[in-house]
Write a protein that binds this DNA or RNA. Structure first.
Lengths: 260, 260
DNA sequence: CCAAAAGTGTTTCCAGTACACCCATGG
DNA sequence: CCATGGGTGTACTGGAAACACTTTTGG
C-alpha cells in the first residue's frame, strides 16, 4: 500500500471508526499453528517498527468482546469457525502504542489531535487461537506491513508486553490440553502419532516417552488408522491417522483431581 | 448515610473522579470466605435494588488493573495482603448499569448528563479473592446500602451477569486448588481435618472419601498437629491443626499430566 | 445406652512410568 | 550395511479408590 492510500485509510479509521469503539480497550490475539514440527505464532510487523507485534483490534460499542476477537481473527487469517479463547487481560499503566509507531503514523500527515484516541493507555484482552496452518491465509492489518509465523520456542523481540502475552497463552494452552481438543485444532486432518507426540512435548514443555504416548493414545480410541503412510526420507514410514472427533471430545475429562 | 450526603458524594464522584478513570471498564470482585462449614460470597445491596451485586470498582488512568482490584478489595473488606487473582473478563454488549439503580441515582437530584459516564456499556474484569472470614470487616460502597455473606451453593438473585461471574470464579477456583494454597487462605489459623475436607468437597463439588482425604493430607506433611481439640457438641472432638506453610507451598505441584 | 461424627487400617486396582528389542527406509 | 526414526511388548510401582471397624462425646 502506498503512503497516500495508507494516510487516507488511517485518517478514515481515526475519524469515523474510533468513535464507534470502546476507547482504551483492545484485543490481542495469540494465533498458534503447528507446522514443520514446530509450534508457531502469527506476528505482524508494524509500520516503521523493528519489533514485531501480535494482531490486535478494537471493540465496537455494540459488540460482544468474544465476537470482536473472532472478527479480528477472521480479518487476520480469513478463518471462521476456529478455536478461540480468552486467557487473560493485561493492564499495566504503561501499555501505550509504541513511540516509533506513533511517529510513523503521524508522519503520514495525520493531525496529531485526531490520533489521540489511539495514543492513550490501553488495556488489552488476550485471546488465543488454534488454527490449521494449511488453511490459514494471513493478512497484514491497517498499521502493519507484513506478517510472519515465528517459532514459539525462539521468538524475535516483540513490542510492549507481547512476549508475556505469548508466554501466558502458552501456559493456558498447557492447562487446556487436558480439556480441549488441541490436537484436532492444530494438526492437519491426517497426521502421524509422532507428530501428535511432538505437539504434546512442545506444549507441555517436557519429554514424554514416545512408546507410552503411543500406547495411551491408541488405547483411548480417539485415533482412526488410515491405510496410508506419511512419506519421509531415510526412515520407516509412519502410519497416518485421523481423529474420531466424538471420541476425542468424550475422552477429555477435565476431571479435577484432589491435588498435591 | 442520608439522602443529602449521598447526593453530594455521588455528585463529587461523577464530577471529579470519573474523569481520572478509564471509561467503560470496571472491576468486579468475587470475594470468597469459609464460614460455618459453607463457602460464602460477599454481596452488596445497591440503592433501591432488590437484586444483590458483587463489589465493583473502576480503574484510574495511571493505575495497574491488579492494583485497582486490590484497592477495591481493601475499600470493601479492609483487608490488605490477600489472595486476589484475575479469572475472566466479561463483555456482553448489554452490560449496563441496572435501570433501577440508574433511577435511584438520578432521583437524588443528579444531573442526568453528568451521570452519563456511569450509564454507558461496561466491560468488566473479574477477580476472585480468598479471605479469612474472621478478619474481614465488610463495608458497603458508594452505590450500595448494605452487604451480606451468601452461601455460594444457594445464592439469591443477582444483577446482570453476576451469577455467571460467581460460577466462573468457582470453576477457576476448582482448577486453582491444584496449584494455590486455597486452604491456607480460606481456613482459620487453627482448623480440623473435617473442615479442610468440607472445603475441598464444596470447591470440587463432589464427594471425597474422608478417610482417604485424611490419609493423603497427613502423609503430605503439610499439617502441623496442635495439642488441642475443637469443641463441638455431641461428638468426638476433632484435633486441631495448622498449616506448615512452606511445606504446603512446596507440595502444590501444578504439574500438568498428559491428559485424558 | 444411643446417635453422630472423628479417628484408624487394609486391600485392590490401574494409570503412569521405565525400559529393550525389532522393523522399514534412503543413502 | 548402517544410521535414523517408527512400531511393538513387558514389568514395576505409587497413588487413588473402595471399604469396615473402633473411639469419643453430649444428651
Amino acid at each position: 500500500m502506498n503512503q497516500e492510500a495508507l494516510r487516507t485509510e488511517v485518517a478514515h479509521f481515526l475519524e469515523f471508526e474510533t468513535q464507534k469503539m470502546i476507547p482504551q480497550l483492545s484485543i490481542d490475539c495469540v494465533i498458534f499453528s503447528f507446522h514443520a514440527d514446530k509450534l508457531k505464532v502469527l506476528l505482524l510487523k508494524g509500520i516503521n517498527q523493528e519489533k514485531l507485534n501480535l494482531p490486535s483490534g478494537f471493540i465496537y460499542q455494540d459488540e460482544n468482546i468474544d465476537t470482536a476477537a473472532l472478527r479480528n481473527l477472521k480479518e487476520r487469517t480469513g478463518l471462521d469457525q476456529v478455536f478461540l479463547q480468552q486467557f487473560h487481560t493485561f493492564g499495566k499503566p504503561t501499555r501505550y502504542f509504541p513511540d516509533q509507531l506513533q511517529e510513523a503514523i503521524l508522519s503520514l500527515g495525520i493531525d496529531a489531535k485526531k490520533a489521540d484516541w489511539l495514543f492513550q493507555r490501553f488495556v488489552t484482552i488476550g485471546y488465543y487461537a488454534l488454527v490449521n496452518y494449511q488453511q490459514t491465509n494471513p493478512q497484514p492489518s491497517l498499521f502493519s506491513e507484513g506478517f510472519a509465523w515465528e517459532d514459539v520456542e525462539d521468538l524475535p523481540p516483540l513490542i510492549l508486553d507481547h512476549q508475556a502475552l505469548v508466554e501466558t497463552a502458552l501456559e493456558t494452552l498447557k492447562k487446556d490440553i487436558l480439556t480441549q481438543p488441541i490436537g484436532l485444532k492444530l494438526l492437519p486432518d491426517n497426521f502421524t502419532i509422532p507428530q501428535f507426540h511432538q505437539l504434546y512435548e512442545i506444549i507441555l514443555q517436557r519429554k514424554i516417552d514416545r512408546r507410552n504416548f503411543r500406547k495411551k493414545m491408541l488405547l483411548s480410541n480417539i485415533l482412526i488408522p488410515l491405510n496410508e503412510q506419511k512419506a519421509i526420507k531415510g526412515h520407516r514410514l509412519p502410519n497416518l491417522y485421523r481423529f474420531d472427533e466424538a471420541a476425542y471430545a468424550l475422552s477429555l475429562s477435565g476431571e479435577v483431581k484432589m491435588g498435591f
